[in-house]
Design a protein around this nucleic acid. Sequence first.
DNA 1: CGAATCTTTGAACTGAGTCAATTAAAGTGG
DNA 2: CCACTTTAATTGACTCAGTTCAAAGATTCG
Lengths: 276, 276
Amino acid sequence: MHDDSSPSGPITPRHKPLWAGGVRCTASDLLAWTGMAPEADEGTDAVLFSMRRVTAGTVLIREGTAFGTLYFVGSGSFKCSQSDAEGYEQVLGFSLQGDVLGLDGLCDDRHANSVIALEDSTVAVVPYRELLRAGHDLPALERLLHRAASRELMRKTVTQHVMAAASADVRVVRFLLEITSRHALLGFSSRQIRLRMSRRDIGSYLGVAHETVSRSLTGLAAAGYIAVRQRELEILDRGGLHELQRNTRCTAERSSLARRPSASPLVRMGLQVAAG
Amino acid sequence: MHDDSSPSGPITPRHKPLWAGGVRCTASDLLAWTGMAPEADEGTDAVLFSMRRVTAGTVLIREGTAFGTLYFVGSGSFKCSQSDAEGYEQVLGFSLQGDVLGLDGLCDDRHANSVIALEDSTVAVVPYRELLRAGHDLPALERLLHRAASRELMRKTVTQHVMAAASADVRVVRFLLEITSRHALLGFSSRQIRLRMSRRDIGSYLGVAHETVSRSLTGLAAAGYIAVRQRELEILDRGGLHELQRNTRCTAERSSLARRPSASPLVRMGLQVAAG
DNA sequence: CGAATCTTTGAACTGAGTCAATTAAAGTGG
DNA sequence: CCACTTTAATTGACTCAGTTCAAAGATTCG
């Protein structure tokens, strides 16, 4: 929603979670992570779940394994993907604090997706059976599960919108807006972000070649919309990105972006110069 | 799974639902529609929901309206979509018997998607509150909701795979395989199908121009994989389609399809000739 | 410090989008 | 029931955005 919270650093949590980094957390913490803090009460305070640290690159869920537990992201970020017969990895999405992992396994008791930590992260380990049982006594917990699932569904819808854009540039712009607004909702800066995923991951997620992702980012930077250096990203003109993003499949408009003369006064040099 | 059930007609139900077309149905009917018939018992027989007839073209759910009830598709088919600010309609998916409609509204109590009947259809009207209450006494009903949601999620994943294919032809092929296999799971013929949605709808769903959908179908027909005339579709070489579908973004392979000489012996003339 | 991975950039070919025009089907109303 | 209108589907031509292949920096990790 808001452009930024504070320029001090990329990590400025909006609300201090009850969970202070221990090996256990309460159901109230889960509610807080998913933006349902007001629903927490003594009942949810009493329900405990164990936390698990997941180091960068660790496979939290491997596709094909038996379903039994859900995970709620407490901190860090994850990549959700599926590999087809030929070994091609299709990236399906990225998960942040408050997102639930593993719901895909519910319908046939077997996980269909793999989930990999993109950085050192923590998750609450929530056995599905336990959550169901606790949910019968605590309506807030039942709502937590349902809203987490519904939110997952809505995020997939957003992904469809992102992928439906014909132009690769528009896809990249929508991806940037998506990821930054999610950061903003969590209370992090939406201006400066460190992308935790590779260009290849982004490309797979968007359905474009990773070279094209790189080119689009370079183009957007040249046009002054963003500043990017490797995985460090800064949003310079959010309004302008919103303008671009509106084109569903118009490629003519877009070219005015990529080919905007880079000598234009609009071109504010970003990190690539500041660091060079 | 299987190539066909019977060549007699496109509608050959696998299991006779308990519901016989009345204005009410039982929770057991819902379980039957979603492939959970074994979980039905006296308890679920006693839970009643009202049925609603929805004529072709009717808007069952309009995006932006308040959430309160879910719908389970009893017969017919629906299109799920979202319109952006410019009025462009993004098709998000298609729903058949057993699918649940309206779950997207759960997380913020307002529907984000529109749902339109593609043909004369019927749905079970399931107030969310009632389902929750009934679910506390009948585990099967709770599972129904959860599995329906999880299935929805998995279908979105399939959609991502479909859209992630770089080649338009591959997208169309995957779409055909998706829709026919869903028909097969419901006990309908997977060889002959009447597409209920327009080329434009398919194009929106796949993220390609509707002309391209048309061209791809024509090309597939010319190559003998399918026979198509308007919305009547016949799958002639399902194995061949599976071969094509495996290419994620290889366009070279694909051209050998579209440009396979139409005089090839492989070209079996289909409906377009039979009717001409 | 070297190996492996990731990112960027270039060049060339082509798939698919856009525009446009024709044909087919489905409503509409007299 | 048949003209008429409207919408859907097909097909063609042209153009360019994006994929592919290739190769050179940058970064990370052991």
